[in-house]
């Protein structure tokens, strides 16, 4: 029966799909280390915190050492923290503006990337039709579209939304199509034995089976979304996180600028953590 098509691989050689690997396991099994840390540093699960503390210490040291050249170009951690606290209302508002552009584009790109990826990955004819184009279009660094998007589209919001969409769509689509194309034979067999129709097959079998790949794509896409958005905001926003950094760079207010960079890092990190939680919950069935 050709209804489900055969396994097809959308062989797009691109960094976007390179990250698409099935998470091998969800279990974290304690493993004896190959190179144990010295005893003084061995605090269970605290190695990461120790490393960050070390970086901050180094930062403090360097900023004190180069004090003469102007503390405002290389602000100390303490000054940055104080500035961050003072700028928090402005930063939170900027986050709100940024997310107003980011979220709709992100959601739309994920929905379209997943839906189209599932269909293309399971339909050889569509795959043959679409993959040459995808092979050409997906490796184009999406930041390159920004100036033209801003020129072409009526408002900054639509331009930024468009480039975020491009940045998210390709990794999500490529990973989904690859995952759907590499669907294990036994899932197909079972679906055929049960007599599932194509839409049911996509919804109840291919989609859940492809979820590990889809989440790989979304992880890459989310990082791209932030890159695209902040870069776009550097170009021509009137508010948002990227705009915050650019504005204070223009005013040579580097403590605020560094605070903005740090704050953006935290926002991206929290977003990734949230995604990780959702992924763990959705992939509960993976052994």
């Amino acid at each position: 029966m050709a209804a489900f098509g055969s396994e097809t691989n959308l062989a797009v050689s691109s960094t976007l799909s390179a990250a698409a690997q099935l998470p091998t396991t969800n279990r974290t099994r304690p493993r004896s280390p190959d190179f144990p840390l010295p005893k003084a540093l061995r605090i269970q699960g605290k190695e990461g915190i120790l490393f960050i503390a070390g970086i901050i210490l180094l930062w403090q040291f360097v900023s004190t050492a180069i004090h003469f050249s102007g503390k405002y170009l290389f602000p100390s951690p303490v000054l940055t923290a104080r500035t961050l606290w003072a700028s928090l209302p402005e930063l939170l508002l900027g986050t709100g503006y940024s997310f107003l552009i980011l979220l709709p584009s992100l959601v739309f790109a994920i929905l379209l990337g997943v839906a189209w990826g599932l269909v293309v990955g399971t339909t050889p004819a569509l795959n043959r039709m679409f993959s040459p184009f995808a092979r050409f279009a997906s490796p184009v660094p999406p930041t390159i579209y920004i100036p033209y998007a801003i020129a072409l589209l009526p408002t900054f919001r639509t331009a930024a939304g468009f480039v975020v969409f491009i940045g998210v769509f390709w990794p999500v689509f490529l990973n989904t199509a690859n995952g759907a194309g590499a669907l294990p034979q036994h899932y197909r067999d079972n679906a055929r034995i049960l007599g599932l129709e194509k839409t049911e097959y996509l919804r109840r079998v291919v989609f859940p089976a492809t979820l590990p790949y889809i989440f790989s794509g979304i992880s890459v896409g989310l990082v791209f979304a932030f890159i695209m958005l902040t870069v776009a905001e550097l170009f021509g926003a009137s508010n948002g996180l990227g705009r915050f950094v650019q504005l204070y760079a223009d005013y040579a207010d580097y403590p605020r600028m560094v605070a903005g960079i740090l704050y953006t890092g935290v926002v991206v990190w929290i977003s990734m953590e949230v995604l990780e939680r959702i992924k763990k919950r959705a992939l509960f069935w993976l052994k």
Binding site: M1, H186, L194, V205
Partner: peptide, 27 residues
């Protein structure tokens, strides 16, 4: 082609891991 007239039990992997036993049968 396959038909509901012929049920199949495979060596393993007959059930979808993202559905409970009951949901597998309900599908």
């Amino acid at each position: 082609g396959p038909s509901l007239e012929r049920g199949v039990v495979f060596q393993n992997y007959s059930l979808f891991p993202w559905l409970t036993l009951a949901q597998n049968i309900e599908l």
